[in-house]
Amino acid sequence: MKKEIDSDKAFIRLNNVAKYYEMGESVVKAVDGVSIDIKRGDFVAVMGPSGSGKSTAMNLVGSLDMPTKGHIFLDGEDISSLNESELAQVRGKNIGFIFQQFNLIPTLTVFENVVLPMALQGVPQYEREEKAEKILRRLDLLDRREHYPNQISGGQQQRVAIARALANDPEVILADEPTGNLDTKTGLKVMDFLTELNKEGRTIVFVTHSPELAKKYAHTIYWLKDGKIERVTKERKK
C-alpha cells in the first residue's frame, strides 16, 4: 500500500481525482480533476447544483467508487489501489454513511440494523449488542429497538441511520443530503447531532444543496460546478 508522505495535515486527500462515465458514445465527466484536503476533525460541506458531481465526489471519498484518474488517501493510505474486499474493510471500519433515503434494511429491526456493521467487522457478539444498546440510548431510540424501519417516523429512521453509522466508531461520517427527506425541524436536529459528533473529534463531510445549512454548520465549504471545484470557503464558527 502506497503511503502519502506529506499527508500529515490532510486526513482525507483527493489528489487530482477524476471520475468519468461512458454513456454510449459520449463520456460524462462527473468529477474532473478535483483536489481536496480535509483535515482531521473538520466539518465539511460539499455544495453545488444537481449534476455538479457532489455525490460522485462523496462516493469517491467514501471509497464506494473508484476514481478513473488520481489518488485518494485516507489517513495517509492510498485507497484508490485497494481491491474490493479491502475497500469494504476500510468502509466498515473508518467511514460511517448517512443517506438521504435513510437506507435501513427493512427486514431487520432497529437494533439489528445497528448491530449489522459490527457483525460485518467481526466484533464479538456480546460486545456488539452492548454497544448497539449504548448508541441507541444516546440517540433516544432504545424504546424503538424492536421496531422495524417502516414502523417508525422519518426522523427516527434517520437517527437509526446515524446510530448505524456510529456502530464501528468511525473517524469519518459521510452524509449525503442527510436532511433531504426530513422536515426543517427534524433536519436541524440531525444537523445538531452531526455537530455534536464533530465536537467529539469526528470528521464530518456532508453533501447539501442548501447554502444556509452549509453556512450554518460547516467549517469548510467546497463549491462544485461541472465536476470541478469552483471555490472553497471557510466559515468561522463560535
Binding site: 474490493e84 474486499s85 469494504a88 466498515g92 437506507n103 434494511i105 427493512p106 460485518l120
Partner: peptide
Amino acid sequence: VKEIGVMKSIGAKDSE
C-alpha cells in the same frame, strides 16, 4: 440491489 448497496456501504465484502 439497493439493500446490497447499503450492505456494501456499511462494510459487507463481496464474499459476504
